[in-house]
Amino acid sequence: MNTKRVLIIGGPGTGKSTLITALEAKGYTCFHEISREVTAAAQKKGIEQLFLTQPLLFSELLLKGRIQQFKDATSLDKKYAFYDRGIPDVAAYMDYTGDEYPDMFRDACKEYTYDIAFMLAPWKEIYAQDNERYESFEQAEIIQKYLIAAYENYGYNLIDVPFGSVSERVTFILNTLKNHK
């Protein structure tokens, strides 16, 4: 079976992880966001915000992890694999910070492509900052623009997920997938 790789993307605090958890509860294979793991590991080493202090290292770790997640779906015997963020997110965040990055980032975005991408917009009512999410809501809105630009640059047609309950959003995604060729 050729597993379709389905992205759930959007700026910080848009509800991606909540949707991934809900899809996983329904029995779908889901790959969780890894930036929190990378951030937490750095914090254990005394680096409060690796993304801010060493953005290239942080991004290289994310890229490596996301490529591995992409490869992990190759052996699945499932119709869909859902991802909380994708490989182009790494380039989008580097563009947001204005940091230079090697061509391997762009090459990975071209080599590892997903089948469909759902975009969640910034939603002030659900946005919350925490130990790993340091961005303000206004910064999240700016990051969203960089995400859209990066994904469109790599040829993705983004499908906007409407605001609504978790159940409504999951239903929208699953219904859209049923009609997607």
Rank of each mutant, 00 (worst) to 15 (best):
T3S: 05
K4T: 01
K4Y: 01
V6I: 11
L7I: 06
G11R: 10
G11I: 15
P12Q: 15
I20A: 04
I20Q: 06
T21Q: 04
A22K: 02
L23H: 03
L23Q: 01
E24S: 02
A25R: 01
Y28S: 01
T29D: 05
F31T: 07
F31D: 07
I34A: 12
A40M: 12
A40N: 13
A42S: 14
A42Y: 10
K44P: 08
K45Y: 15
G46N: 15
F51H: 14
L52Q: 15
L52A: 15
T53L: 13
P55K: 15
L56P: 14
S59T: 10
L61R: 13
L62C: 13
K64Y: 12
G65T: 11
G65M: 10
R66I: 08
Q68K: 07
D72I: 09
D72A: 10
A73G: 07
T74W: 03
D77C: 06
F82Y: 06
R85E: 10
P88R: 08
D89Q: 12
V90G: 09
V90C: 11
A91I: 15
A92C: 12
D95Q: 10
Y96H: 13
T97C: 12
T97I: 14
T97E: 13
G98M: 09
Y101Q: 11
P102T: 06
D103H: 04
M104P: 06
R106N: 14
R106S: 11
T113M: 04
Y114A: 05
L120I: 07
L120H: 08
A121P: 02
P122D: 09
W123M: 04
E125K: 06
E125F: 00
D130K: 12
E132R: 08
R133E: 08
R133H: 09
S136E: 00
S136K: 08
A140M: 09
I142W: 05
I142K: 15
I143L: 15
Q144T: 04
L147H: 13
A149Q: 11
N153T: 05
N153Y: 11
N153V: 03
N153E: 11
Y154I: 07
Y154H: 06
N157W: 07
L158I: 04
I159T: 05
I159S: 00
I159K: 01
G164T: 01
S165F: 08
S167R: 01
E168T: 02
T171S: 07
I173C: 03
I173G: 03
L174S: 06
T176E: 03
K178P: 02
K178C: 02
